[in-house]
């Protein structure tokens, strides 16, 4: 049933969306601007994208970003799925505290996450030095830092995907001759799969876009795209950075839309057991 919206309300909605998306729209438009300086429109061009890909530092940051995003997503998807399944399957008195612990990394300010991870890594490094080992901040520190906040998203998506399903489904599979591994593979995993995929996509975009936590944990030699953008715009906004940002926006939007499409309940799925 569609209901007529009050004109004032829809005007307000447009205003809000405008406020949210206008800056991004400007950014995208200017990435196609044939002028070295922002502010004036000098005709359409795609040359900045070419300039961008020719830059050595951009290519390196892109490689770093993709490596971090892919490996952290892989790890956090496996771990987060297990946590989500555990939360669905076991009703312990720890369920509520556990859920709370999962939500915390999501709502905690990024800066706090970044600082605490930085401290944590230096503590670990201090401990390791006693044994003669050491490590630099770089790929590994950034990657594990991303995993820490990605796990929560994956776990909660998997958990919410399974929320409508009864635990007796697993028992039914066991009853029909499936071992616990088989019942996991043939029943639980297929049911959770949309949640797992959506969680993975979400985790991937979060890693791709992350600036704050990465900035704190990356050290000096290791740069991802968001960090590169930040250090570049300190010297002034250039059109090729606009182009880079546009590409990031594009990838993120596509991933989020895909995640939503996967999670959307199929028509006909009813809540009842």
């Amino acid at each position: 049933m569609m209901r007529r919206t009050h004109p004032a309300l829809s005007a307000w909605a447009w205003l809000v969306y405008g406020f949210l998306y206008l800056p991004i729209l400007v950014l995208i438009i200017f990435s196609f601007n044939d002028s070295k300086f922002g502010g004036t429109w000098a005709g359409f061009t795609t040359k900045w994208y070419g300039v961008l890909l020719a830059r050595e530092d951009v290519r390196e940051a892109l490689t770093n970003t993709l490596l971090v995003a892919l490996s952290s997503t892989l790890i956090s998807t496996v771990l987060g799925t297990l946590v989500g399944l555990g939360l669905w399957r076991y009703s312990t008195r720890f369920r509520l505290p556990l859920t709370f612990l999962l939500v915390t990394p999501i709502v905690i300010p990024d800066v706090v996450m970044g600082v605490s991870l930085l401290m944590f890594y230096s503590l670990v490094r201090g401990g390791l030095e006693l044994t003669g080992w050491t490590f630099e901040n770089g790929f590994w520190t950034v990657m594990f830092a991303h995993v820490t906040f990605q796990i929560s998203y994956v776990a909660l998506t998997v958990r919410s995907r399974l929320a409508g399903y009864d635990r007796s489904l697993e028992e039914a599979a066991r009853d029909l001759g499936a071992s616990s591994v088989q019942s996991f593979l043939r029943v639980i995993l297929p049911l959770a799969l949309p949640g797992v995929l959506a969680g993975a996509l979400l985790a991937f975009t979060l890693s791709l876009d992350d600036f704050v936590v990465t900035y704190f944990t990356s050290g000096s030699g290791f740069r991802t795209l968001p960090v590169l953008i930040y250090t570049s715009v300190k010297k002034g906004v250039t059109p090729d950075i606009n182009a880079l940002s546009t590409l990031l926006v594009l990838v993120t939007v596509v991933a989020i839309i895909a995640a939503n499409a996967i999670m959307r309940p199929r028509p006909g799925r009813r809540g009842e057991a």
Partner: peptide
């Protein structure tokens, strides 16, 4: 364990596998 017993259960909540068709549900065992 349940999977090795010559016993089958009709659950109170039915516990049909929602991702499988009726045929595949029946064929599961």
């Amino acid at each position: 364990p349940p999977n090795l017993r010559p016993v089958n259960t009709v659950f109170q909540s039915y516990a049909l596998f929602p991702h499988l068709s009726v045929y595949d549900n029946v064929a599961f065992g």
